[in-house]
Design a protein around this nucleic acid. Structure first.
Lengths: 154, 154
DNA sequence: GTCAATTAATCAGGGCACTGATTATTTCTC
DNA sequence: GAGAAATAATCAGTGCCCTGATTAATTGAC
């Protein structure tokens, strides 16, 4: 009889938030292209010709995950990759015409979806909400490799 | 040249938030037990003897996912399940002694982790943050099966 | 120039999350 | 009481997310 109230646990709420978003994305944006996949397309619209690792950095996906996401996008003909002639370890990524079209099409829909998603909040709350999430995530990411331990061992 | 700023996309931020939480959980709480697994243990501390589907409902996991999570917890000896003599479709779940001990141990650590996770925000902001996430998630979950379409088709 | 350290990408393995289909049991209807 | 509808659980398939180990190429030290 010492159960905890999970509604005070930001991690639990974050998971539920993401699930809710996933569902809404599926109904309002696309059943084919996922939100992380769109983020990758978007990164390459912003900076064409990036390599795989850097794209992962831009959108917040680790080396393994970005590899999977990219291989799916290539399989679907939205991306192609060529070896960097300057550095034989790297692959340079580029959007295909269809990739570009897909990005354009989904951009409109994601805007609408974001509106619906945030509609329970007032305009001021929406701005605050985005800012708070960002501050918490940024701070936690900053704890990644800090040189000194985060907490004293119990 | 029509890339979007993903920092205004709540879904993208939600994903990053969850990743940040995942990392912090791993370093501050446990490398064995995950946050969803803890949520399941916690649900069974609050209401012992629930069946699998109901536990999933309580913690926000669908039928497939809850089945996997529970089978891992059983494999690790933290849970056991018995057929409901009243209803042969159901399994009733119970915490083992070790499951109970694990829940108790992790409860302390999650509290500390939540403090660290939210530390970039002031006390007032923390309260607001949790409330805003909850309102957005609840609203989006309410859109699940509404009888009428969410949006006019494009 | 050669060997060592670094770096980009891949692979193996574990866990979370969803959908659609299937199986077993119960409940509802007649 | 027999057949139909509903419900709990499982299975197959896809995708995201992480770590640790491995491979191939480049860079740096000497």
């Amino acid at each position: 009889m010492a159960a905890v109230d999970l509604t005070s646990h930001p991690g639990h709420l974050a998971r539920r938030l993401q699930q809710a978003h996933y569902l809404l994305w599926n109904t309002m944006v696309s059943e084919e292209i996922t939100s992380p996949q769109f983020a990758v397309l978007n990164a390459l619209v912003a900076e064409p010709g990036l390599d795989q690792r850097t794209v992962g950095e831009r959108v917040g996906l680790d080396r393994s995950t970005i590899a999977e996401v990219i291989s799916r996008l290539i399989r679907r003909g939205l991306l192609d990759k060529v070896r960097d002639p300057q550095d034989g370890r790297r692959f340079l990524l580029g959007l295909t015409d269809e990739g570009l079209r897909t990005h354009r099409r989904l951009t409109v829909r994601t805007a609408r979806m974001n509106q619906v998603f945030l509609s329970p909040l007032s305009a001021a709350e929406q701005t605050l909400f985005l800012e708070l999430i960002q501050r918490v995530s940024d701070a936690a990411e900053g704890l990644r490799n800090p040189g000194e331990p985060l907490v004293a061992p119990s």
